[in-house]
């Protein structure tokens, strides 16, 4: 097999960080990630000793629990060539915030830096590291892509998902207005400040509706659940899916929040 893209490894061993939301709510995204990674030439392992990246604690100011969770993640994943997560938010936590958390820690700093260098968000990993091209799925319909905040601003993910989506046969990508504006999810923010969160997501669903698309896509399940839940409460019929589900062609089951 030919070495691919950025990596000199013929078959890099990827540890899949499933993310808690995908694990709990939408395994289909996890399986889509596995399929895409395998198609791109990776060997995929899913360590059982994973729960969450620690963001709920981290963003609530609880550094002690965050550290404990981070140590657990690093221990479970540092042996892989790459660590890949189907979420910009969780990947940014592992890649950008773990090093901040352990900065100046004699025991953990270097270990964390080495770990962080291996971490990638799924779509950007496929595109930038594996130079993945072989999208052989079809999708008949018009979609729009929402840039989730962490992926966009902490990891620079914007061009990669669009590039891969444009290779899906039959798919028409139509940009909504301000795709880079927050959907109002913000983790615990959406329940702590539900009134404000609602005002923000209302603006988002209005721009989604104005784009006149069949489906809304994004790379983060938290944002997707927020937007899907709002669209459905408003009685809108736009379907909502994770970008990996479309790229992997795993579209048989119901879309997010859709009835069986």
């Amino acid at each position: 097999m030919q070495p691919k893209g950025d990596t000199l490894l013929t078959q890099p061993h990827v540890g899949l960080f499933v993310t808690c939301l995908v694990d709990l709510f939408r395994p289909n995204i996890g399986f889509s990630a596995v399929e895409l990674l395998e198609k791109a030439g990776c060997q995929v392992t899913v360590p059982p000793a994973q729960t969450c990246c620690g963001q709920p604690a981290y963003n609530s100011g609880d550094r002690a629990n965050t550290r404990a969770i981070a140590e657990q993640v690093i221990e479970a994943f540092e042996k892989f060539d790459y660590v890949v997560a189907p979420s910009g938010s969780c990947a940014a936590m592992l890649k950008k915030h773990y090093p901040e958390l352990f900065a100046g820690d004699a025991q953990w700093e270097e270990r964390t830096t080495n770990f962080a260098a291996k971490v990638f968000e799924l779509v950007s990993f496929l595109s930038d590291v594996m130079f993945f091209q072989e999208i052989d799925v079809t999708f008949q319909g018009r979609v729009t892509y929402h840039d989730s905040c962490s992926g966009l601003r902490e990891l620079g993910i914007a061009r990669q998902p669009r590039k891969l989506l444009q290779q899906v046969e039959g798919l028409e990508l139509k940009e909504m207005e301000n795709p880079d504006v927050c959907c109002g999810f913000g983790g615990t923010f959406c329940v702590k400040y539900s009134d404000i969160s609602n005002a923000i997501v209302e603006k988002k669903t209005a721009t989604i509706e104005a784009a006149e698309v069949d489906m809304l896509l994004a790379g983060d399940l938290g944002c997707l659940m927020n937007m899907a839940g709002k669209l459905q409460r408003e009685g809108k019929t736009t379907k909502v899916r994770h970008v990996a589900e479309v790229l992997a062609g795993r579209l048989d089951g119901p879309a997010i929040g859709e009835g069986k």
Binding site: R26, P27, V46, P48, S194, G229
Partner: peptide, 23 residues
Amino acid sequence: GRGWTKYRDMPAPEGKTFQQMWA
């Protein structure tokens, strides 16, 4: 979960967790 469901629906989980299905 009223903070969530006051304004939006909650997408239901598929049923089994990914880890469960993977195992």
